[in-house]
Design a protein around this nucleic acid. Structure first.
Lengths: 107, 107
DNA sequence: TTGACGTGAAACCAAAAGGTATCGCATTAA
DNA sequence: TTAATGCGATACCTTTTGGTTTCACGTCAA
């Protein structure tokens, strides 16, 4: 029962949200902790976290007055699922894909 | 020399553009042919095709007064590259979630 | 109990996204 | 040569997105 990839793809469209996902691979973080990593207000970060949650890419755990944001890698399943459709065209039209993936990339 | 995933992720954020990519797996299509598949004007489809091209997900070949749009699966490389960062968290987190937590309060 | 802390939520704004209608231009067909 | 075709480009509109400021509310510490 793979869910629609729509909200996940939309959540991944913004560089800030992708960076938040990277941050959350290191540790769970409160909103304030995430906000410290960006040059924007806590309210703006909160909106990004909401979109990430809507896309199923993070989960939250309320602990007292804090709210811990946690990466949910399983939320990437619909994305991988959609992308897997192109696997066969990958090989058919492109031979040296693996060399293309070699490099590192940033935003 | 993998390019930035930004424009590719942005191009994938819209359902119409993802559907266009699916269509182009079947055959190369002119703008008019793509437009026939959607309930919107040719100009709107053209904008989507431009964003797909900006993201490196399609290429175009001008043939006389026609312009053939062709899927470029290699353009997905930056996307796969970025997503591959989360591969290692995939299994680990899934195991943690399954063993430690039973109910998810995420919706 | 008081007050600081972490957050949620709302109002507001500028810019981008997604769409339309319309015009012009190069190419092709009659 | 003339007219239809396929497309590019522009102006314009509405909605969404990404950001701010401000305020209210529950929680925790002193």
């Amino acid at each position: 029962m793979t869910q629609s990839p729509h909200l996940a793809f939309r959540a991944l469209a913004d560089p800030t949200r992708r960076e938040i996902m990277r941050l959350l691979t290191e540790q769970d973080m409160t909103i304030a902790q995430v906000s410290d990593q960006f040059d924007m207000t806590r309210a703006a970060v909160k909106k990004h976290l909401t979109m990430l949650s809507d896309g199923g890419l993070i989960t939250t755990e309320v602990r007292g007055r804090e709210r811990l944001n946690r990466l949910n890698p399983a939320g990437l399943a619909p994305v991988f699922d959609w992308l897997s459709f192109f696997d066969r065209f990958w090989d058919a039209r492109l031979n040296d894909l693996k060399t293309a993936i070699e490099g590192e990339s940033d935003d």
